[in-house]
């Protein structure tokens, strides 16, 4: 079973993604902040990571900077999840090393498709 790590500081956000992905047959792990996400990633070596950009403390950009600097996570698909709708945010995320970009509110099918595409 493929492992997916979901980092979001809001519990409802985590539960939504967890439910959708578990229904699709993935094993889902949760992190409640950026630091936890980095630690969990080291511990679990997930096949895919979904990072909320906007987290207190170490945010999504901080997490990806940390992970991408390590050989082990150089190729791990990482999706940015954000409620921001500003122009240029997507470009910024892709430049930072994200492989996918999903805006909140997510369409469930869009999320399923993006995860499936990256884990194919």
């Amino acid at each position: 079973m493929k492992k997916v790590l979901v980092a979001d500081d809001r519990a409802t956000g985590r539960e939504l993604v967890r439910t959708v992905l578990e229904n699709s047959g993935y094993e889902v792990f949760e992190a409640t902040n950026g630091l936890e996400a980095v630690n969990q990633a080291h511990e679990l070596s997930p096949d895919l990571i979904i990072l909320d950009i906007h987290m207190p403390g170490l945010d999504g950009f901080g997490v990806i900077e940390q992970l991408r600097s390590e050989e082990h996570f150089a190729a791990t698909p990482i999706i940015a999840l954000t409620a921001s709708a500003m122009m240029g945010d997507r470009e910024r995320a892709m430049a930072a090393g994200f492989t996918g970009y999903v805006t909140k509110p997510i369409g469930l099918n869009a999320l399923r498709a993006e995860v499936a595409r990256l884990l194919r």
């Binding site: 809001r10 409802t12 956000g13 939504l16 439910t19 959708v20 229904n23 906007h54 409620a83 921001s84 709708a85 500003m86 909140k104 509110p105 997510i106 369409g107 469930l108």
Partner: peptide, 26 residues
């Protein structure tokens, strides 16, 4: 910008969960 962000965040889960319920997978 931040208001839009703050409003979207809870809306994201409201929309997501209502969609999830509507799918009747649960």
């Amino acid at each position: 910008a931040s208001m839009s962000h703050e409003l979207r965040t809870p809306l994201h889960t409201i929309i997501g969960f209502s969609e999830l319920l509507g799918e009747e997978l649960e």
